[in-house]
Design a protein around this nucleic acid. Sequence first.
DNA 1: CCGCTGACTCGCG
DNA 2: ACGCGAGCCAGCG
Length: 118
Amino acid sequence: MESQSAMDAIFGVVRQVPAGRVATYGQIADLTPGCRVTARMVGQAMRFASEGVPWHRVIGAGGNLPIGRRDAVLEREQQSLLAAEGVIFTAAGKVDLSRSQWHAFEMPVVIPRTPHDR
DNA sequence: CCGCTGACTCGCG
DNA sequence: ACGCGAGCCAGCG
């Protein structure tokens, strides 16, 4: 299994996803600071999500719910949890990322500019 | 050390 | 639309 510290880092990012919004495995991986975290690892980590970690807001690329291949019951739970939060689904049963994807707060890159160079 | 396996993703036919 | 293979990286036998 992956290291506990890596999962903690991943959980830390997942906890930032607000209700009504979703993020993809790859997105979480990219946002997770520290070492090389891949989408696969995020998925593994979600299996061990503890209380307080909104695992249901983490979905597959393109709005898929890849969990369905493993556990249909769990997938229904994820759907109901998301629906209860107001997440928009498409007719195809996928999450409408264009409307519900979480956009992490990005720290604006402050370009250093000294008084004399302008 | 090798190979297989994933709640993954992307590209190609 | 759908399957397949390759990249991905940690864990396990």
